[in-house]
Structures are given as C-alpha cells and as structure tokens.
Amino acid sequence: METLMSILVGILFAIGTYLILTKTLLRIILGTSILGHGVNLLIITMGGLKKGGPPLLGIKNLTYADSLPQALLLTAIVINFATTALFLVLSYRAYKVLGTDDTEQLRGTENE
C-alpha cells in the first residue's frame, strides 16, 4: 500500500508541478491545490498506513494509528485552504486591474 501511495503521490507532484509551470493564473492555482493534496497524502503515508485503529481513546484498540502526522495534516489542510483562497482573490484582482491572466504578460516593467 505504501509503495502504491508513493507512486500516486509522485504522479500528483508531477501534474501539480507541470500546472504551476504554465502561464495561466487559474492553472497555476489548480496546480498548487493538487500539489497540496500530494503533500498531504505523502505525510500521512510516511506515518505508516493502517497500523491500528483511529487515535480515539474511547474506542478500545491495542494500537492506534500514528496521531502526529494527522495533527500536522489538520493544520496543513486549513493553511492550504487559506493560501488557495488568497491566491484566487489575488489573481482575480490582478486580472481586474491589469487585464490579463498570463504570467508572461505580467512581468514587471524595466527598472521598476
């Protein structure tokens, strides 16, 4: 399972990176979103998969799944959401003000 997950994460990273390298702002944002999913899956995979019950003390289990990656991820998901929202609004404003969503045309002017 971990091996397969690693390959899946690799594919998500590749697709996310490719989208980030394109010129359209919307594609770049989608790329960061996919990259974020890849990172989340990578972290939880690294904690080891299906090694016990959910980390809830009320449920009688001999072992629990690793709780630390889960705590990290919870934070990561929320932060990811915040940055995605900011990105979206930023690109919306950039398009409104500058009239383009192409990063090639969004280069700074000389000596700015």
């Binding site: 998500l12 697709i15 996310g16 490719y18 990578l42």
Partner: peptide, 14 residues
Amino acid sequence: ISIGVGVLVTIVAL
C-alpha cells in the same frame, strides 16, 4: 522538470 520532481518525490518516499 515536472516528471523529474514526481520521480524524485516517489524515490524519496520509497
């Protein structure tokens, strides 16, 4: 580059 990144991440994860 993106395939490189993907392969690298997989290798590191494995």
